[in-house]
């Protein structure tokens, strides 16, 4: 790290992203704003994936600090232990793309504050660890943020089959990823590979929403 590399210009970075992704698609990605609630195994991976494709802006919310026990699945490093997750992740994302607009929300979110904190986002990605915050966030988004894209997650612990992780549509522009049942129990903890599968379901679904793709099939509970 002693030898400082030249940082590519914004034009150079945008050019390679547009070459890879297609100019029209990249223009859309570059204008998009995504909020991520919770920066653990899901949220840190979603943020990195969206930063790599040159998202316009990320709002990143977490109240916690990086701990040694996080490193089995979360996108942090030994030298970041003790730092707030928001600060650590902002630092990592800037190393991927220094031109992305990043906003840290360093607080414990509640159902009541979510619509205000994430006002104006195109897509909100729910990456909470706490089971009670998951329905709370869905209620907040669906009642207080009309028309917002939303991707939640439920059920990704352990090392169950890859293909039991699914993304289902529950309302227009509102999706949930996961297997809906794998919670943390003894011998069935959260592990990088499967949490990563779920996180990347979420990231890709967020991208699909941003690019205007609406999945019509796979309603969640038959009638919703």
């Amino acid at each position: 790290m002693d030898k400082k590399k030249d940082i590519p210009s914004l034009d150079a970075l945008n050019k390679v992203l547009a070459q890879r992704h297609g100019p029209e698609i990249q223009a859309r990605i570059g204008k998009s704003v995504v909020g991520i609630m919770g920066l653990g195994g899901l949220g840190s991976a979603v943020a990195v994936a969206l930063a790599r494709i040159g998202i316009g802006k990320l709002l990143l919310a977490d109240y916690d600090v990086v701990e040694l026990s996080n490193l089995n699945r979360q996108y942090y490093f030994i030298d970041q232990i003790g730092l707030p997750k928001t600060a650590a992740l902002l630092d990592t994302l800037r190393r991927i793309n220094p031109y992305i607009s990043l906003q840290a929300i360093n607080e414990r979110l509640t159902e009541q504050v979510i619509p205000e904190r994430f006002k104006g986002v195109d897509v909100l990605v729910e990456c909470f660890d706490d089971a009670a915050m998951k329905p709370a966030a869905l209620r907040a988004a669906h009642t207080g943020m009309k028309g917002v894209g939303y991707v939640g997650a439920s059920g990704m612990a352990g090392f169950g089959p890859n293909n039991s992780i699914l993304t289902k549509r529950i309302y227009p522009r509102v999706y949930l990823a996961g297997d809906e049942k794998s919670e943390v129990v003894e011998g069935h903890g959260l592990m990088a590979p499967r949490v990563g599968i779920c996180a990347h379901h979420q990231a890709n679904q967020a991208l699909r929403i941003l690019l205007g793709v609406e999945d019509k099939e796979s309603g969640y509970a038959n009638h919703l």
């Binding site: 089971a131 869905l138 997650a153």
Partner: peptide, 12 residues
């Protein structure tokens, strides 16, 4: 009533 429930499990 037509009741739709989504039960969430923790982990993230």
């Amino acid at each position: 009533a037509r009741l739709e429930l989504i039960r969430f499990v923790g982990g993230g």
